[in-house]
C-alpha cells in the first residue's frame, strides 16, 4: 500500500493519528507579548505524501512553520521528526537531519552564481571545515561530485541555461525553482515549502506544481503552506487547516472545503465571500 493509499482510512478530524508519520507534534505553543500565535495540541504528518497547511491570515501558519524548522523555539511542547526529538534543535541541525525548508520571500543568494547556490545546498562537505578548506585535494573530488549533481538538478528544473549567472538576475519564479532545486541538494526526507506559489507568474506555476509532485514520486515528504485552494486541491494528498493558532480541521482536499469549521474560520476573517482562499497573499501573520 502506498503512503497515499494508507491515508484513505484516516478519519478527517483534527489531530488524528496516521499510519506512518514522519513528523509528530505535541502541545506546541508560542506566544508573542501575551498573544498566542500558535497552540497546536497534536498533529501528525504522513510520510511520503504532500500535506498542505492552509488557514486565514494571522492563523499562525508561518510561525508554526518556523517552530517546526527550528527558526523559532516553542514556549512549550515537543515535535518528533523521524523518530528523533526535533524541538529545541536549531535549524541547521534539522536541515542536516533531512528537514529542509524554503521561504515565502525567496532566499536565492543573489550574489552567488546559480551553480554556487546549488553547491551550497549539499551537506557534509569536507571543504566546509576551516582547516580542510585550506588543502584543496581534500575536497576537490567531492566538489566535482557535488557539481555534477547540481548540474543534473539544474537541468531537471530547466535552469541549466542560467548556470553561471548571478542568482540576482533571475525572475521571481526562477528563484522559487532554484530554491526548491537547492533544497534537494541537501538530500531531504521532508521538504517544507512556505508558500511556494506566492509571487510566481502563472506560466511557471504549472511547472512548479509538477516539480512538487515529482518530489512525492521520489519518496520525499512535502509539507507546504498555501493560500490558493486550487493549488491545494490539485496537488495535495492531505490538508491541515489552521485558525487562530490551532488546528481546526484535517482531511483529504476534496472534502475539506465543505467542512463547516473551515468555512466559519474563513468567514471570520474575510467577510466578503466564503472560502476566498486567494485573499491572503499579503502576509500579515508574521508578527
Amino acid at each position: 500500500m502506498t503512503p497515499v493509499e494508507q491515508l484513505a482510512d484516516v478519519a478527517p478530524e483534527p489531530g488524528v493519528s496516521k499510519p506512518d508519520p514522519i513528523l509528530v507534534v505535541d502541545d506546541v505553543s508560542r506566544a508573542f507579548g501575551g498573544l498566542k500565535a500558535v497552540d497546536v495540541d497534536h498533529l501528525e504528518v504522513q510520510r511520503g505524501v504532500i500535506t498542505a497547511l492552509i488557514g486565514p491570515n494571522g492563523a499562525g501558519k508561518t510561525t508554526f512553520f518556523n517552530l517546526l524548522t527550528g527558526f523559532d523555539q516553542p514556549d512549550s511542547g515537543t515535535a518528533v521528526f523521524d523518530g528523533e526529538i526535533a524541538s529545541g534543535k536549531s535549524s541547521h541541525e534539522l536541515a542536516r537531519k533531512g528537514m529542509v525548508r524554503t521561504f515565502q520571500l525567496t532566499k536565492a543568494l543573489t550574489k552567488l552564481s546559480v551553480v554556487e547556490n546549488m553547491k551550497l545546498g549539499a551537506t557534509h562537505q569536507r571543504g566546509e571545515h576551516f582547516f580542510a578548506a585550506l588543502v584543496s585535494p581534500l575536497w576537490n573530488a567531492q566538489e566535482r561530485d557535488i557539481e555534477s549533481r547540481a548540474d543534473a538538478l539544474l537541468e531537471r528544473f530547466k535552469l541549466d541555461h542560467m548556470r553561471d549567472e548571478y542568482a540576482g538576475t533571475m525572475s521571481g519564479g526562477q528563484r522559487k525553482l532554484l530554491e526548491m532545486a537547492r533544497s534537494l541538494m541537501a538530500d531531504p526526507t521532508l521538504v517544507m515549502l512556505d508558500e511556494p506559489m506566492a509571487g510566481v507568474n502563472p506560466a511557471l506555476t504549472q511547472s512548479l506544481l509538477e516539480h512538487v509532485k515529482s518530489l512525492r514520486h521520489e519518496g520525499i515528504t512535502v509539507m507546504f503552506v498555501e493560500h490558493d485552494m486550487d493549488v491545494v486541491r490539485d496537488i495535495s494528498d492531505w490538508v491541515v487547516v489552521m485558525a487562530e493558532g490551532q488546528i481546526i480541521a484535517e482531511g483529504p482536499p476534496d472534502t475539506i472545503g465543505s467542512n463547516q469549521q473551515v468555512i466559519d474560520a474563513y468567514l471570520g476573517s474575510h467577510h466578503d465571500s466564503a472560502l476566498d482562499l486567494d485573499a491572503g497573499l499579503l502576509d500579515e501573520e508574521k508578527p
Partner: peptide, 15 residues
C-alpha cells in the same frame, strides 16, 4: 559568503 547575504538561507541548508 552565503551567510553574509542571507543567514537564514544558509541555516535552512544545514549550515
Amino acid at each position: 559568503k552565503a551567510i553574509r547575504e542571507d543567514e537564514d538561507a544558509a541555516r535552512a541548508l544545514g549550515k
